[in-house]
């Protein structure tokens, strides 16, 4: 079953709801009040301090893919409730709320698109959907995106944004890490390029699987990247974390990142790397 969808909404429509008067917004980085139209033109990056506003998955489709076009696949995959999980809410209700809130079927959109005329198998995660967490649906959609890449011999590009594996699906969420990584091993054997793009935040189960396995790994500036969450680390070691710990810059400094790219340069750098890796 293939699903086709053109993403038409402009970036501004995604952001409108969050702004009190609809015209101006406050930068989380420096507190400056910025004119919305200006911000949109600047890829939602503050001109004064370089703060990268958090984007929705559709915004990345608009920024990275030619004409903002994605031929979406597997939109019909939706989560089961393998554990009949309930904390303060039933898991199916949590999913339903997230669907309603985001208009998405789960925390990743996958499909085929073009980056400067080069066809790619593309995936982009959305933090708005249960913290971008990876359960069976995310794992399966990413797995199929990898397989699509292998079948069509086209590069794979995944934009990650995730707090990790989805607790409410228990061990099966954990297994998605092994599943996606194993398929990436196969893709790598076929010498098909995979570019992993990390955005704020990418941590835990996603960081410890496909997000870390790109031939080239690119991150936006000042994203939170890592395995364990900063709060857990602080609790464990009982001391304050150093300034800039687990940021993109920290990641690059320690050798786990190829490039830090500002949002306006992201498409150009991905496109160039795809050219070099072909």
């Amino acid at each position: 079953m293939e699903w086709f969808r053109k993403v038409k909404e402009g970036l501004i429509s995604q952001k409108k709801k969050e702004i009190p008067d609809g015209l101006w917004t406050k930068c989380e980085g420096c507190g400056e009040i910025i004119y919305m139209k200006e911000l949109e033109k600047d890829f939602w990056v503050c001109k004064s301090c370089g703060f990268h506003f958090k984007l929705k998955s559709r915004d990345y489709i608009n920024i990275l893919l030619d004409k903002g076009n994605l031929e979406e696949y597997d939109k019909n995959l939706t989560s089961a409730d393998p554990l009949k999980f309930k904390d303060s809410k039933r898991y199916p209700d949590r999913v339903k709320n997230s669907k309603k809130k985001t208009g998405l079927s789960d925390a990743v959109i996958t499909g085929i698109g073009k980056i400067n005329r080069m066809e790619v198998s593309f995936g982009v995660m959305d933090f708005g959907f249960i913290g971008g967490s990876m359960g069976s649906v995310v794992g399966e959609k990413v797995a199929r995106a990898i397989e699509r890449s292998a079948e069509r011999k086209i590069p794979l590009v995944i934009v990650s944004c995730s707090g990790g594996a989805r607790m409410q699906e228990g061990i099966l969420s954990l297994m998605q890490m092994a599943k996606t990584s194993a398929l990436l091993a196969r893709l790598s054997d076929l010498r098909i390029p995979y570019i992993s793009v990390l955005t704020n935040p990418t941590t835990a189960g996603v960081m410890a699987s496909y997000a870390s396995l790109g031939d080239v790994i690119i991150a936006e500036p000042k994203a939170l990247l890592g395995f364990a969450g900063p709060r857990v680390i602080q609790q464990t070691i009982g001391q304050k974390l150093p300034e800039g710990f687990q940021s993109s810059e920290f990641f690059l400094e320690h050798g786990f990142l190829d490039v830090i790219a500002e949002r306006k340069d992201l498409k150009r750098i991905i496109s160039l790397m795809l050219e070099y890796l072909s």
Partner: peptide
């Protein structure tokens, strides 16, 4: 590992 996971395919 490829088979692991449970989801609904509408």
């Amino acid at each position: 590992f490829r088979k692991m996971g449970q989801f609904i395919e509408e």
